[in-house]
């Protein structure tokens, strides 16, 4: 018979730790040994309370041990997550300020106040740089703190890469010949060789989107999302430029894209916190 309080305590200790086979083995081993110790202490005449306390205090820092068997211990990953979020918020706000400062400069120049606009812009940049540097340092210290998890992250990433690599290869090998066929067909039919090459940029965006949809749940998801987003922006830029012959202002797409991206990042962080 298993003591319920000890079992509950062990459940608490392992809460949030990935139930990998090795972890479950340690858990079972721990539970058996703790229970036997508890019964021994009772048999030696200790009260249930004293026995329980001495059993629990004898466990030690099990997370130190688990960090060797899971990709990361619950504390380290929580801490890392927190710091990464803080960094992302700071970098987001910093980039938003930079983008905003350009708008400030444009508006002030419009009213003939270039020098004031420039001064404000420089102040904005200084503040933004400070925020970004602080944010990046914040995440750096977290890496130093969990030196071993950094290596494990890399290992994890490698394992991840290997399992998805073949799938990626398969998609690429079918995808690009198809795009070339579509490009040639479209070009011959429309005779618009000057524009049709944009299909390659669109294709790149679509490819990134496919990767993103397929691997959204994996660690790589974020990478593909950014890839998709930016290739789509480049495609949009060329399309707008050609269709409206609007090279004079179509570059604003990039600034709008930066702003949009930062808003999305902020929304993601906000949703995670909820």
């Amino acid at each position: 018979m298993m003591n319920k309080r000890i079992a509950e305590h062990v459940e608490d200790v392992f809460a949030g730790v990935a139930p990998e086979p090795k972890v479950l083995e340690i858990k079972e081993e721990l539970l058996t040994n703790l229970n036997e110790k508890y019964l021994d202490l009772l048999a030696a005449g200790q009260s249930e309370e004293t026995a329980y306390a001495s059993v629990i205090s004898g466990i030690g820092d099990i997370h130190d041990l688990l960090r060797d068997y899971t990709s990361s211990g619950p504390y380290s990953s929580m801490e890392r997550e927190r710091r990464r979020n803080q960094k992302n918020i700071l970098v987001s706000i910093g980039s938003a300020i930079v983008v905003l400062s350009l708008a400030v400069l444009l508006v002030f120049s419009y009213f003939g106040l270039e020098s004031l606009g420039l001064a404000l812009t420089i102040i904005c940049w200084a503040v933004a740089t400070g925020m970004v540097v602080y944010g990046v340092n914040l995440s750096k210290t977290s890496y130093e703190k969990h030196n071993n998890t950094f290596v494990e992250q890399y290992k994890e990433k490698q394992a991840d890469d290997e399992s998805t690599l073949s799938m990626k290869k398969a998609i690429n090998s079918a995808f690009w010949p198809l795009i070339v066929v579509i490009y040639l067909a479209l070009s011959f039919i429309t005779r618009r060789w000057d524009i049709t090459w944009i299909i390659f940029i669109i294709a790149a965006a679509v490819q990134q989107m496919i990767h993103w949809l397929l691997f959204a749940k994996s660690k790589e998801g974020g990478k593909y999302w950014h890839g998709m987003f930016w290739t789509a922006v480049v495609a949009l830029y060329f399309i707008i430029s050609f269709v409206f012959s609007a090279w004079a202002w179509s570059w604003l797409v990039f600034i709008a894209a930066v702003a949009l991206q930062q808003i999305i990042v902020l929304l993601k962080i906000w949703r995670k916190r909820q």
Binding site: N33, G58, G60, I62, D64
Partner: peptide, 30 residues
């Protein structure tokens, strides 16, 4: 032997002066 038995023997031999933490014990086992 097994975890608790080893730790109990260590404790008895040391006259209650020394005992391994479970975490230390399993870490060493692995």
């Amino acid at each position: 032997s097994y975890g608790y038995k080893i730790n109990k023997a260590i404790q008895e031999k040391s006259g209650g002066k020394y005992e391994l933490k479970e975490a230390t014990l399993y870490g060493a086992f692995r």
